[in-house]
Design a binder for these strands. Structure first.
Lengths: 180, 180
DNA sequence: CGCTGCGATGTCAGAAGGTGTCATCGCGTA
DNA sequence: TACGCGATGACACCTTCTGACATCGCAGCG
């Protein structure tokens, strides 16, 4: 038996999500999150730079995934097509069975301007990373940036639709439609 | 002689800009800004909801201006054209003689993720307002949102170029080129 | 002329977010 | 056994931001 329960990071993310749902983002204090996770406030800030960041941990993996797909697209694929299919595939891989989680998370984000700011920043980072990936494939400016912007815009507008539709429609399906 | 010097808001904005340039955004405290402006910290927060907001006061007027131009565009103007010329005109009216101010301000924003977040939020608000304006002219979705997004994207990419070009090239000129 | 209400500011106390620094102690390794 | 590492705790501290109440010139009004 080690000195502390392992998995502090996961416990913090879980506790935060629960409390945000129960009491709202702004009403929840970091101290409460830490207490429910069984750690100190200080430990929270060792895992997350910010109170907000606890909701955006997955963003990094998502970025790597999409960028990887774009980088690895068949030689000669048109920039816009590479972006489009990367997003479609990522939608399948990442969000297929997580609609209810995504819905909760999005509801929280929509409730707080602070969180919306952070999300915009993450999307801007994603845009920049995609533009770099395209540049690495020899795509010049401003084509690379414009294709990246377009892709992220499509994603950004498709996501709310997928989340809100009560039905079981596929995210990748919606994305495919919107790209047209 | 009134009880206090008038123009507290202007003094705060001026003091903030100076201190941000001198010491950097993060190193400057609200207390310092207030002291230089000759008021209390509390007064700062009566004028600005946020430490960040002191740099974004003009955003509201800019939004009203662009939206007004779009709303007042000749009947029958294509959505995209309405947006494009609104931005060109606004560039002339708002930024013509303020390049050095804009450069300072942008340098500060670029130095802090906090400020970049806020700027992205303001641009998102502008996008939404433009989409509403187009909708008010009878433009349907998704055309309205896409035209608004495109316009803001062009603005967002043109601005850094205008700011960084050492030369005297016109913002509205750059914008016109990018729209093509 | 004196009263009165308003508006802009000050004063104070305090919650919450965030950081630096040092202490603790189980565990793997020499 | 001794040692050092890594994750966490403990604590003090600063900054941002908010609520509640006090102050006092000024304008209007009787």
């Amino acid at each position: 038996m080690s000195r502390w329960e392992p998995g502090a990071l996961g416990r913090l993310e879980k506790a935060a999500l629960e409390l945000f749902v129960e009491d709202g983002y702004e009403q929840t204090t970091v101290a409460e999150i830490a207490a429910r996770a069984g750690v100190t406030e200080r430990t929270f800030f060792r895992y997350f730079t910010d109170k907000r960041e606890v909701l955006f941990g997955g963003g990094h993996e998502l970025e790597e995934h999409v960028v990887g797909l774009v980088t690895g697209a068949p030689v000669g694929t048109a920039p816009f097509d590479a972006i489009a299919s990367a997003f479609e595939a990522t939608a399948r891989d990442f969000f297929a069975d997580r609609q209810s989680y995504a819905r909760q998370r999005q509801a929280i984000i929509n409730s707080s301007p602070d969180l919306q700011e952070r999300e915009l920043l993450k999307l801007a980072a994603l845009t920049a990373a995609l533009a770099r990936a395209l540049a690495g494939r020899g795509v010049g400016e401003p084509t690379a940036s414009l294709a990246a912007e377009s892709g992220v815009t499509v994603f950004k507008t498709s996501f709310p639709r997928w989340v809100s539709e009560g039905n079981e429609k596929d995210l990748s399906q919606i994305i495919k439609e919107t790209f047209a």
